[in-house]
Amino acid sequence: MKITQDFIKKIVGMAAQSRQDEIGCDDCFDQLHEFAEIELEGKSAAEAMPLVKDHLKRCGDCREEYEALLEALKTVS
């Protein structure tokens, strides 16, 4: 299949930013409720749980779920 130079650059960018210690979707999900609550308390969840934050930056599905979770919790809190 054919791909563009921009796409190759995107892959290179993602590869260059890769870390050995990234967590996967399961580990992120296991900690997401805690992460969300820290954030809603106005504290820095990214500082407290940097690997969850890192995963959310990289994974669109997990990020979408996190944002929807915050939206839901604003209503029931």
């Binding site: 409720h33 805690e34 969300a36 929807a68 979770l69 919790l73």
Partner: peptide, 16 residues
Amino acid sequence: ESKLITWAMKIAVREG
């Protein structure tokens, strides 16, 4: 580690 509703809502949001 959080309120139960936060944990439960996480499961529901992923389901949806």
